[in-house]
């Protein structure tokens, strides 16, 4: 088994375990909420003879915090699972819109490090590249990492915009506030494309990562 597949399989397994942990935490905190509700109902029914639990509101607040973190964890878990399964054997095509959304959510922390935000434009339709999802993801991540240090303007915002051209599908990685100097520096720092899989070229304010369209 090659390294890529091994890491993919491990990531998928970790995400499975993580989902089970989150599910248990969610049900346990939900059960606490259920008991809290029952206690309040009993107190109301007893016309105040049975006093209200003193920390009712605080407990409710804590349960809501736990549930919010479970929701957050679920998002991480789903992205980890998608990343893990990107190395699975399967069709040699990938939707660049799906890949952009995934990289957009996975690279949020890297963007924050550069004090930038990352936004992903919605693809208007399925945009199938003749490449494996893992190849699209790694190429896009490389481009995002190359563009981020040159992203300027205030506020700094990096936009991933999937689209379709003549016989190709692409993702533009652009920063509206990129100065001419930044554009020049970026051109000098761009990674090379991978012949037969993808090309990388400069566009206004950033980079276009293009793949041959599947079925063309």
């Amino acid at each position: 088994m090659d390294n890529e597949k091994y890491l993919g399989r491990m990531a998928a397994m970790v995400s499975h375990d993580l989902c089970n942990v989150l599910a248990t935490i969610q049900q346990a905190s939900g059960l606490m909420g259920d008991f809290l509700y029952l206690a309040r109902k009993e107190s109301l029914k007893s016309m105040g003879l049975r006093p209200k639990f003193k920390y009712h509101d605080k407990f409710q607040e804590i349960i809501a915090q736990v549930q919010a973190q479970v929701d957050r964890g679920q998002g991480i878990c789903e992205r980890l699972s998608a990343l893990g399964h990107s190395t699975d054997d399967g069709p040699e095509t990938a939707d660049v819109g799906v890949a952009a959304a995934l990289v957009g959510s996975l690279c949020g922390r890297a963007a924050k490090k550069h004090k930038a935000s990352l936004e992903v434009a919605c693809a208007p339709e399925p945009l199938k590249a003749a490449a494996r999802l893992i190849d699209v993801l790694t190429a896009l991540d490389t481009v995002v990492q190359a563009v981020l240090p040159h992203c300027g303007g205030e506020p700094r915002a990096l936009r991933l915009a999937p689209g379709r051209g003549e016989g190709e599908v692409f993702i533009d990685v652009v920063c509206a506030g990129m100065a001419a100097q930044g554009q020049e520096a970026l051109a000098g720092a761009l990674p090379a494309g991978k012949p037969g899989i993808f090309t990388i070229g400069i566009v206004q304010g950033g980079v276009r990562l293009a793949f041959a369209e599947a079925g063309r």
Binding site: N20, T24, Q27, A28, G30, L31
Partner: peptide
């Protein structure tokens, strides 16, 4: 087990 028992209780 923890998950499914809690789910059953709820």
């Amino acid at each position: 087990e923890n998950f499914v028992n809690t789910l059953a209780e709820r």
